[in-house]
Nucleic acid binder design. Structure first.
Lengths: 253, 253
DNA sequence: CCTTATCGGTTCATTATGTGAACCTTCATT
DNA sequence: AATGAAGGTTCACATAATGAACCGATAAGG
């Protein structure tokens, strides 16, 4: 792997740690030599992607991404466009809604609007869940090019609950359903008692750039309600695709 | 220079270009070989820091910084904390106020609240002005460690108007005044007819992380008004330092 | 008070990685 | 058909990355 690749992976790793972390632990987590990890951290720090607490000597994510993100958002206002859509979906459904973005072969939660109900599902911004165990993941997989999908299915897949589907053949069936219907459903895939539904946000070339999804406690969702949530998620995702990239490609077919 | 350093500088460069740019031009601007530039771009693209338009083959900043920025801001809410302060200053003074952040040896404009007046100063988010020609730059230099300041003053300094101070000795005098008073003033340093004043935002260790500044058409600013703006900027910066890092260090002295 | 085990950080011989002149293909212009 | 400039690729060579061993500091345990 290229040195730059290692540095960026390391940056990702440090960003994913929820508190300042020491050199040795970072090196261990990244499976890099301590000297190598340090050199990369120093390089990243010189450009403010990482910062080191002078007192504790521990490392954390720096300020440079914020500056770059402003530039990116000024040109491609993904969040600025997407957040109102997610908010509206949240108000309409009164369930936890979240927006995920596909970046670096993974699906990252970039915005969450939490349900106003007492019994609700909590999703963390910044989290990154396995594609096969979530509704968002299925929605994404369904619209990914065949080869990317198969590459994913070829990996060993972990089960998170007794309900997690890990068999590639069974997953293919669910993915095909998802593609036909336009929305995915996951019951207890990642956490027991949670049902979620998701629809892909598609770019101008028809490839998914992310997903919008709704997660609710299973007790509130009967079949009729599930159909409602499905079409709400679908509508929100289509609206967002259209806002970002012009007419939704699915409507052109 | 390390390969990682080159990659990050290249990323910075691409981010600073206001439109999609081809490989050859990027290589030229970065003073890198075309093959090297491409390898770095590919590495950056693999992690979504850069993206390439499939149709035009041109490169632009990618989505990864947005994801990292959300994580950073969740932990260190610089903008979330700072923007209300800048807004309040703008409402109080009715002049254009902006927040700059010191990152990578440069001072970047990260937020602007524009004056409601017809005759007003416009400052662009994302811009990066020379330290010696702006009030913000002087405020920053005044509170930087001696060696960083001297390293900056040792460079050749460009004059932007006949009023731009470029003599290191004269600048030192103005910097010392600034440090003594706590705020800097720049008359016509960068653009004729503009007067601006700035105060540093200081972190817990007393080093500047950025500045808050006010820019106004000279015709509206007599000595009394200047004193008002000075103390308003100073108060805003102190409030922000306190909000971000606890008690303002200057008040402890 | 010495031993042991961490920690962050550094060194330097070895080696893998990055480099760039020259090359290829494509495409628009002359 | 010739030209030039684009994006992209190749490979002998040079440089920069690597990591085992090291240092000094700090903390816990006997």
């Amino acid at each position: 792997m290229s040195t730059v690749g290692k540095a960026l992976s390391l940056l990702n790793l440090v960003a994913s740690l929820s508190e300042d972390t020491g050199l040795s632990e970072i090196a261990r987590l990244a499976a890099l030599d301590k000297a190598t990890a340090r050199r990369l951290l120093v390089d990243l720090e010189a450009h403010d992607f990482i910062e080191q607490d002078k007192a504790t000597k521990r490392y954390r994510i720096g300020a440079a991404p914020v500056r770059l993100a402003r530039i990116r958002e000024a040109r491609f206002p993904f969040l600025r466009t997407a957040i109102p859509v997610v908010k509206a979906l949240n108000e309409e459904t009164e369930e936890t809604c979240h927006l995920s973005e596909f970046s670096g072969h993974e699906l990252w939660t970039v915005h969450v609007e939490t349900s106003p109900r007492a019994n609700r599902v909590i999703v963390d911004v910044g989290s990154c869940y396995p594609l096969h165990a979530t509704a968002s993941g299925l929605a994404l997989l369904a619209f990914l090019p065949e080869e990317s999908r198969e590459a994913f299915l070829a990996q060993p897949l972990k089960a998170f609950t007794p309900h997690t589907v890990t068999d590639p053949e069974a997953l293919r069936a669910r993915i095909n359903e998802t593609r036909a219907r336009g929305t995915s459903v996951s019951r207890n895939g990642l956490e027991p008692g949670v049902i979620s539904t998701a629809a892909p946000v598609l770019s101008a070339d028809g490839l998914p750039v992310g997903t919008i999804s709704i997660a609710a406690p299973e007790v509130r969702v009967d079949d009729a309600r599930l159909a409602e949530l499905n079409s709400a998620a679908q509508a929100a995702a289509s609206r967002l695709s259209a806002a970002l990239y012009g007419l939704d490609i699915r409507q052109k077919r």
